[in-house]
Simulated assay, not measured.
Amino acid sequence: MADSESERAAVTTRAAREGAAVAADYFRTDLAVETKDGDTDVVTRADREAQERVIETIRADYPDVTIVGEENDAPTTVPDEGSAFVVDPIDGTNNFVRGVPFWCTSVAAVADGEPVAAATVAPAVGDEFLADETTARLNGDELSVSRRDGPETATVSPTLWWDFDSRDEYAAAAEGVVERFADLRRYGSAQISLGYVAMGALDGVFSNLRGNPWDTVAGVHLVRCAGGEATDLEGNRWHHDSRGLVVSNGAVHDAVLSTARDAEAQRG
């Protein structure tokens, strides 16, 4: 059984690659699409089979570990004690089913509630974001967040899904970006967006929502390892069950946090 941090990181990477390979075989094929909690919450055979492959890969080294995941009735809560893995077989399924290449398989290793390794593999665009305990890399090259320190030069992405009864929050989030920053991006995959903060392509990613751990944990770890910052809506260090997700290069964090709070001000 694997037990060192380096072995955990290796298993995380191997599992993400295996799951991504399964998903990639279905990409841009005639794939049946089902819905879960709403018309925009979609799932496919590719999601389920990719998660099964990820779990099989992890279980080969960690037969009894908790595996938190989005599909197949997996546990949905990260334990605050002991080891666990957090899995998103396809983050960006709406992109996936439309043939848009911004989707990924994401896996994080967690110890006592804190991520210690992460892998976000995006085969359709040829990118692998990997992190051990301290260092983040993209396709083998060490990552660092951007140095942009003025909001007027920053590009920021509102992320996660505001449902139809929360569109005033979504609108406030978008308006806040337009008013404060140089430009807005929205890729349709939280994990890819977080990876882009880690590599310096984006300067901030935010939401006033509470994200699922499979949408957030791996990417937050990548950003922190690349020198960035992640907090909740109160400005406290982000945790897997935090309300709000505010991630940045650090230099423009206050402006990103203010934009997330603008969205939250519309709630209820």
Rank of each mutant, 00 (worst) to 15 (best):
Glu128Arg: 12
Arg8Glu: 06
Gly250Ala: 09
Ile90Ser: 04
Gln266Ser: 13
Ala109Ser: 15
Glu71Trp: 01
Ala230Asn: 05
Val78Lys: 04
Gly140Ser: 05
Gln51Gly: 03
Leu184Thr: 08
Asp149Gln: 05
Val145Asn: 02
Ser6Glu: 15
Arg185Gln: 14
Glu34Thr: 13
Glu49Thr: 04
Glu56Trp: 07
Tyr62Ala: 03
Trp103Gly: 04
Gly140Asn: 01
Val178Gly: 14
Ala108Ile: 00
Leu143Arg: 00
Ser242Cys: 04
Arg45Gln: 15
Val177Tyr: 06
Leu257Phe: 00
Asn212Gln: 14
Arg59Ile: 07
Asp3Arg: 13
Asn212Leu: 13
Phe85Glu: 00
Phe206Asp: 00
Val22Lys: 01
Ser207Ala: 12
Asn94Trp: 02
Asp25Lys: 14
Arg210Gln: 15
Asp241Trp: 09
Asp165Asn: 13
Thr44Ala: 10
Asn95Met: 06
Arg8Leu: 13
Arg28Leu: 10
Phe129Gly: 00
Lys36Ala: 15
Asp64Arg: 14
His221Lys: 00
Arg261Asn: 13
Val220Gln: 00
Glu179Trp: 00
Glu56Asn: 13
Asp165Ser: 13
Val87Cys: 08
Thr153Tyr: 15
Asp88Gly: 03
Arg224Cys: 04
Glu179Pro: 01
Gly219Val: 02
Ser146Leu: 06
Asp112Met: 08
Phe96Thr: 07
Asp232Asn: 09
Ala24Lys: 10
Asp127Trp: 15
Thr153His: 15
Asp203Thr: 10
Val43Ala: 09
Val247Phe: 07
Val145Lys: 07
Val86His: 03
Glu70Lys: 10
Val256Phe: 03
Glu229Gly: 06
Thr40Pro: 02
Val121Met: 08
Val252Gln: 02
Asp112Gly: 05
Gly92Phe: 06
Phe129His: 05
Gln191Met: 08
Ser193Tyr: 06
Asp183Ile: 12
Trp161Leu: 12
Asp168Cys: 10
Val87Pro: 03
Arg185Thr: 14
Ala15Asn: 11
Ala23Arg: 04
Glu128Gln: 14
Thr134Trp: 04
Ser146Met: 08
Glu7Asp: 02
Glu18Tyr: 13
Asn249Arg: 09
Arg261Ala: 11
Ala122Trp: 04
Arg185Cys: 11
Val116Pro: 09
Tyr62Met: 08
Asp91Arg: 07
Ser157Lys: 04
Ser83Cys: 11
Ala218Ser: 09
Val86Gly: 00
Gly200Pro: 05
Thr105Trp: 07
Thr40Ser: 14
Ala131Gln: 02
Phe102Arg: 03
Gly211Glu: 11
Ala50Asp: 01
Ala198Leu: 11
Asp262Ser: 12
Tyr196Lys: 15
Glu34Phe: 14
Glu175Cys: 12
Phe206Val: 04
Ala21Asp: 14
Ala32Ile: 13
Asn95Glu: 12
Phe102Lys: 01
Thr135Glu: 15
Ala50Gln: 01
Glu7Phe: 03
Gly82Thr: 06
Asp61Ile: 08
Leu202Arg: 05
Leu233Asn: 03
Leu202Pro: 04
Tyr187Gln: 14
Phe102Thr: 05
Ala60Gly: 09
Val87Glu: 01
Ala109Tyr: 12
Ile90Lys: 01
Tyr170Asp: 15
Ala16Glu: 00
Glu56Pro: 01
Trp161Met: 08
Asp3Ile: 11
Ala20Asp: 15
Ala117Gln: 05
Glu152Met: 08
Leu233Lys: 03
Phe206Ile: 02
Gly268Ala: 12
Ser166Trp: 05
Pro101Val: 07
